[in-house]
Amino acid sequence: MTTTEPVIAARHIAKRFGHVQALRDASVTVPAGTVVALVGDNGAGKSTLVKTLLGINRPDSGEVVIGGEPVELHSVRDAQARGVDAVHQDLALAPELSVVDNMFLGHELVSGPGFLRRRQMMERADAAVRELGIQLPSLTVPIRELSGGQRQAVAVARAVMWSRTAVLMDEPTAALGARQSEIIAELMRTVAAKGLGVLVISHDLPRILKAADTITVLWRGETVLESPAADLTVPDLVATMVGYRAEEAS
């Protein structure tokens, strides 16, 4: 069930890197229980905006809002402390480690020096995977032995396990086949149904139009469209992404 209350938002963000104005006036709002897609042409500022929401970038102006309050994020740890986690495009998984070890990487449960609480880690990882309906051969198999879709699913499950507020996803279906991409799209809806906000960067316009509740379009570092996904078509999005509408409005 969706709600209009935003769990995370960016308001009028500007960010410059040297001579490059990456963001000029970028805003996005992610309510609890919804999937919001962030789309735009290459160089529109999508990744820069998401990195700002994660505390990787500090905005030159504008504000990040989490849980209804403006916040200053100085690192990814700051965002994680507020219940925000991410699925990065490179997944940030350790291929030689098992599924369970990857899910607890940086969050290991210990009892005394050098002793991992493996039973509790296995139980929590198993519950997290089952809750999202993810099918894996085993939690002890190394990540390198999983398919691309299974690796994506593990990265999503890990982010959800440590999130209380929102999950941000950067191109979660990149390099996946059609069926695997559909599974990840369904997984986005499952995550939102848990009450988390989901913000996803995607170039897969037909699929994201079906999966998302709202579409936000960036063009040259500015938010030029925020609309219910049901009101849009792929040609609408393409025209906006390449600036036709923005030019017509000027």
Rank of each mutant, 00 (worst) to 15 (best):
T2A: 14
T4H: 14
E5Q: 02
R11L: 14
H12I: 00
I13P: 07
F17Y: 15
V20M: 10
V20A: 12
Q21W: 03
A22R: 11
L23T: 00
R24D: 14
P31T: 05
A32L: 07
G33H: 04
G43N: 05
G45K: 09
K46E: 12
S47W: 13
L49W: 13
T52K: 12
G55P: 01
I56E: 08
D60F: 05
D60H: 05
G62R: 07
E63Q: 15
E63I: 04
I66D: 11
E69A: 14
P70L: 06
E72F: 03
H74N: 12
S75K: 05
V76G: 13
D78F: 11
R82T: 04
G83I: 00
Q89F: 03
Q89R: 06
L91K: 09
L93A: 04
L93F: 04
E96W: 01
V99W: 13
V99D: 12
M103F: 06
F104A: 02
F104R: 08
P113L: 15
P113K: 07
P113R: 15
G114L: 14
R118A: 01
Q120F: 00
Q120L: 12
Q120C: 01
R124G: 14
A125E: 07
D126P: 00
D126V: 00
A128T: 00
R130T: 12
P137S: 06
L139H: 10
T140S: 13
E145W: 06
L146R: 02
R151S: 08
Q152L: 08
A153Y: 13
V154Q: 08
M161H: 07
M161A: 02
S163R: 02
T165F: 13
A166Y: 07
D170M: 06
E171H: 03
P172S: 10
T173W: 13
T173Q: 13
A175T: 14
A175S: 15
L176I: 05
G177P: 03
Q180R: 00
S181N: 01
I183R: 15
I184M: 13
A185S: 15
A185M: 15
A185W: 08
E186D: 15
M188R: 01
T190F: 00
V191H: 02
A193H: 13
A193E: 14
G197H: 07
L199F: 13
V200P: 01
S202V: 07
H203F: 07
D204I: 04
R207C: 04
I208G: 01
D213G: 00
T214S: 00
L218T: 02
W219A: 00
R220F: 08
G221L: 03
E226K: 00
S227P: 05
S227H: 12
A229F: 11
L232I: 11
L232T: 07
T233M: 11
T240D: 11
M241T: 02
M241F: 13
V242E: 06
G243H: 04
Y244W: 09
R245E: 15
